[in-house]
């Protein structure tokens, strides 16, 4: 648990961050809260000769809400998410999710940007962002661009972000819907055995729209369009739930680990999704 030597950079301007990334290429990594990267460095599983700390970069700490449009700066901590009253009103699913991430100590340091950017299949925010159809806002040497969260994740730790780009914020339209983030984990601080993010809008006693995303059940978060389709137009009865679960199970690809074998994970994924849908439907 002793990291190899590294250069520590703490620029105050984003231009300097980009310059460092351009200069050092693969040898440089940006750090937000550090709660994924630092343990990896201590385990010597991540070799980072140049560590660029983002905490002195201005403008990354904001939570902005304009109407239904929410933008979360990359350096917003989980703790700040949980305690932001206006955010809790407009998009309560953020708070519900963040409260299920790690423990209070980690949430004081862990950030939205780090959680979203890293591409760790165990992280909770990527699935949530896919559920919310968020845009991931990147900046790099050739300017800024946005990538849909649903297109961002390519494989475990592999994302659409280029090595010389920095994730600066995520933005989404807060859903006027019922919502739920349901997570089963072995203990506090653990990644999900299975987790589901669900939003549902209701119209005339039927599901008008639905969004379903699953966490830690594949090497990337899984937004299940088929599960959404299975719910639309139904009243979330037993058959609709079963159809949504069956559709979702077609999209996930869990692997065996210490949390359990594949059969168990698939079963629990179904149970968790049903519970998330039921809660979201209740709230719709």
């Amino acid at each position: 648990m002793i990291p190899a030597a590294f250069e520590y950079h703490r620029p105050t301007k984003m231009d300097d961050v980009i310059a460092l990334l351009t200069e050092h290429g693969d040898d440089a990594r940006v750090m937000a809260g550090g709660h994924s990267l630092i343990p990896m460095m201590k385990l010597r599983m991540a070799d980072v000769p140049h560590l660029i700390d983002l905490q002195d970069i201005g403008g990354l700490q904001n939570i902005s809400i304009e109407g239904q449009r929410v933008t979360l700066g990359a350096m917003v901590t989980q703790h700040e998410l949980i305690n932001h009253t206006a955010l809790a009103e407009v998009a309560p699913i953020l708070r519900e999710t963040a409260l299920q991430i790690a423990d209070p100590q980690v949430r004081y340091m862990g950030t939205v940007g780090g959680n979203v950017a890293n591409g760790d299949p165990g992280n909770d925010m990527p699935g949530l962002m896919q559920c919310l159809d968020a845009q991931i806002n990147l900046t790099g040497p050739s300017g800024s661009r946005s990538v849909a969260a649903r297109d961002y994740y390519e494989a475990a730790y592999m994302t659409a972000r280029e090595d010389d780009e920095v994730l600066v914020s995520v933005s989404f339209d807060a859903p006027r819907s019922g919502y739920a983030y349901e997570k089963q984990k072995r203990k506090i601080g653990d990644y999900a055995t299975a987790a589901a993010a669900v939003t549902i809008t209701k119209d005339g006693g039927k599901v008008a729209s639905a969004s379903v995303a699953m966490t830690n059940l594949s090497d990337v978060p899984v937004w299940s369009e088929a599960a959404c389709d299975a719910l639309v137009g139904t009243d979330c009865n037993v058959d609709a739930l079963a159809a949504a679960v069956a559709a979702m199970l077609g999209d996930i690809d869990p692997t065996e680990d210490n949390r359990g074998p594949v059969a168990f994970k698939r079963h629990v994924a179904g149970v968790i999704l049903k519970r998330a849908i039921a809660r979201a439907w209740d709230r719709a």
């Binding site: 423990d103 072995r186 203990k187 601080g189 653990d190 210490n258």
Partner: peptide, 28 residues
């Protein structure tokens, strides 16, 4: 309810960190 030192067939320790080795907190 979960704390174990588990090995695979090659004698690799599968529960070598506190992510997998269960040390309860006030929460559990």
């Amino acid at each position: 309810l979960g704390q174990e030192i588990a090995y695979d067939d090659l004698g690799n320790v599968k529960t070598g960190t506190l992510m997998d080795f269960f040390l309860p907190t006030a929460w559990e």
